[in-house]
Design a protein around this nucleic acid. Structure first.
Lengths: 206, 206
DNA sequence: ACCAACTCATACGTGCATGTCTGACTTGTA
DNA sequence: TACAAGTCAGACATGCACGTATGAGTTGGT
């Protein structure tokens, strides 16, 4: 809702017809769902999913990477609207739980798109888009470490990776019908909290 | 070295020339490395990586799925030779550490191939190939639960998934040069052991 | 040394996805 | 209502990967 430079696709760009804006949104949404069904979905598939002609799609996005980029950027922007509302102050552990619970849903929704993007977009671009979200989580983990709530014998980057990876694992299990989406946040916490709050641990401290 | 029914590729099948066997092996190995470099490697790429002509490849494997299948089966078979040597008795936690340390290397080596296989092979086939390895790990986790070494408030399937997922995460970090391969097993244990051995935990027990 | 097994270059056919173009048609908007 | 903006079907060019020949040349085994 803020910057909306709209630069990506259309000809003139600035003045879009209401009609066109709706189609653009439909295509963006369809990209997510189509790629979720089939990670290698073609532009035809996506256009079909959106209920629009292939030509219309090309009218909005000149190339495939451009579409993927726009779809991912859109997803992330919507995610930001949710994540930025999560209160991060107070007990780091509780804040972490809140943030994970909110993030989980987003990850579950757009991880297929992310995977597709990793194939077609430069890694730097993807990092750039995730910047805010990553900084938020990293900041919280760091604070947790400083306050002694999270263990400090592991680098924040590894805690971050672990968090991502476990959320993705849960998403996979849900997709394979081996896990109820409702239970996912609890399962994730059940792994991450003890893993992150544990003291130095018996294993060799190196 | 045991069953080797050789049925997959060649014409006569039973009697292979020494020459041909070597090429077959080279191609299998090249498949792993080529796909690791580029998950979408074409058969040309793989043949080139193997230092052989594309036609030779087709002489051994009639179709792409057949090649992928053979390469994955081969990788897993080699893995089995290692994993079957790991002693699983004694303290479950220590056994788990041993098994993870050995598995990790294998996962790191062939996870790209696995991903490719998931696209081209029926899921049942992949499960079938992983049967032994999965049963081994599952059995150990179950024993650990029964003996009270691992927590029992989470299903074994979720412990299993978590293990996979964390090992894969470590592999990704290594690939991105953010983690030293030497440290990986320790990082993995540092997450999994507290996560698996922790008692009921403060969080809502449901 | 001989024959079969194998390799490999070249070439061909096919299917599919991307991206471009054209022209007729519909729909917003001023 | 008139015009620009947008939609959409159809056709076309291109490139790539797969899979299938064919034939001449090598190489292994006996």
């Amino acid at each position: 809702m803020t910057q909306k430079m709209a630069g990506t696709g259309r000809r003139g760009a600035a003045n879009q017809r209401a009609d066109a804006q709706r189609n653009r949104a439909k295509i963006l949404a369809a990209t997510v769902t189509a790629i979720r069904k089939n990670p290698d979905a073609s532009l035809s598939d996506i256009a079909a999913e959106a209920g629009t002609g292939r030509q219309t799609l090309y009218g909005h996005f000149r190339t495939r990477p451009e579409l993927i980029d726009a779809a991912l950027a859109d997803s992330i922007e919507r995610g930001e609207e949710v994540l930025s509302q999560v209160p991060l102050d107070g007990d780091p552990v509780e804040a972490f739980q809140r943030l994970v619970a909110s993030s989980w849903v987003l990850v579950d929704r757009s991880r297929a798109l992310l995977a597709a993007a990793q194939k077609e977009l430069p890694a730097t671009r993807i990092r750039e888009m995730h910047e805010k979200a990553e900084a938020r989580m990293r900041g919280l983990l760091e604070r947790g470490q400083n306050e002694g709530a999270f263990r400090s014998d592991l680098p924040v980057s590894w805690l971050l990776t672990t968090t991502h990876v476990v959320m993705n694992g849960a998403a996979e299990e849900v997709r394979a019908d081996r896990l109820d989406p409702e239970d996912a946040p609890w399962f994730i916490d059940a792994i991450l909290l003890p893993a992150f709050t544990s003291p130095a641990q018996p294993g060799q401290p190196r």
